[in-house]
């Protein structure tokens, strides 16, 4: 199918973008990488009156370490994040997740901010952000605010973002020598959205772990933390963690709920092994 007609405006500054959003609200949509939005337009799942193309805004695609955070600009492309030394060094969980996102041509356009704002329940980056306890920087004509990952993902494709707001950057706590991360997913074809996936972070504490954060994706309306399993894993009990998984996935085109529940346990064992692996 082809998109319904819409108006198109390419903006050059953040100010211009938020002013247009304030004016048009629900009738406008921001266009970042377009790798989710244009697909929904083509299928007429969405028909905004105006597309605000933010690709011409300079300085929205930086990847830098700023004190205790790695700051990833909303327009940083997946391919750029995948190749980034700053990410490899200070945000290793993101580096592990990157190759699983889509295919090369998708990664050349798709953006970090777009992925977080879109909040597909089967997407990798929202789960990584939740596992890392990161935060989202938001701008609007009224000013700026920050929302922590735990409060950002609200429901199916629903976030704390309001229609007049724009994500400017995502901030991730810098990994240090005691940071442990783990990542695993199962997809039908490499690069497709996962049937089930798990992103995790923890802190090494002697031979054990503390601050375990396990964020599943593909098993609910949002990325989901499993706090009882987190506690069991912090106690060093992997079997107990697996039996404590209280996920309630639904059947979807990819897999049945029963299969998803089983795979969630399989992934937890894999990720637990990664978290407990001692590093030099």
């Amino acid at each position: 199918m082809k998109p319904a007609p819409f108006a198109y405006k390419k903006v050059r500054t953040l100010k211009e973008a938020v002013a247009l959003l304030a004016k048009h609200k629900d009738n406008a949509r921001l266009l970042a990488g377009g790798q989710s939005l244009i697909a929904t337009l083509n299928m007429r799942l969405s028909a905004p009156a105006l597309l605000i193309d933010i690709n011409g805004i300079r300085g929205l695609d930086g990847i830098t370490k700023k004190g205790k955070f790695v700051e990833v600009g909303a327009l940083a492309r997946h391919a750029q994040v995948e190749r980034s030394d700053v990410i490899a060094r200070y945000a290793p969980l993101i580096a592990l997740a990157m190759p699983h996102i889509g295919h090369p041509a998708i990664r050349n356009r798709g953006s970090f901010g777009g992925s977080i704002a879109f909040a597909d329940p089967a997407a990798e980056l929202p789960a990584c952000l939740l596992a890392l306890g990161g935060e989202v920087d938001i701008a609007s004509a009224k000013g700026k605010r920050k929302v922590k990952a735990d409060a950002f993902f609200k429901g199916l494709f629903e976030t704390a973002l309001r229609p007049h707001e724009l994500v400017t950057a995502i901030r991730i706590p810098v990994a240090d020598k005691n940071t442990r991360v783990g990542f695993a997913e199962l997809a039908r074809r490499h690069g497709d959205y996962a049937m089930v996936g798990l992103a995790a972070s923890a802190r090494a504490n002697g031979k054990g772990l503390t601050d375990v954060r396990l964020a599943y994706f593909g098993v609910g309306d949002t990325p989901i933390r499993v706090k009882t399993a987190e506690a069991a894993l912090a106690d060093g009990n992997i079997d107990a963690a697996v039996s404590a998984l209280d996920l309630e996935p639904h059947d979807d085109v990819q897999a049945t709920a029963k299969l998803k529940k089983h795979l969630a346990g399989v992934l937890l064992r894999r990720v637990a092994a990664q978290l407990l692996e001692t590093r030099p």
Binding site: Y8, K10, L31, G34, Q35, I38, A39, N42, L51, D53, N55, A105, I106, N108, R109
Partner: peptide, 10 residues
């Protein structure tokens, strides 16, 4: 890139 996921105007 995907030719179906970019607009000509872009």
């Amino acid at each position: 890139v995907r030719g179906c996921l970019m607009l000509a105007v872009q």
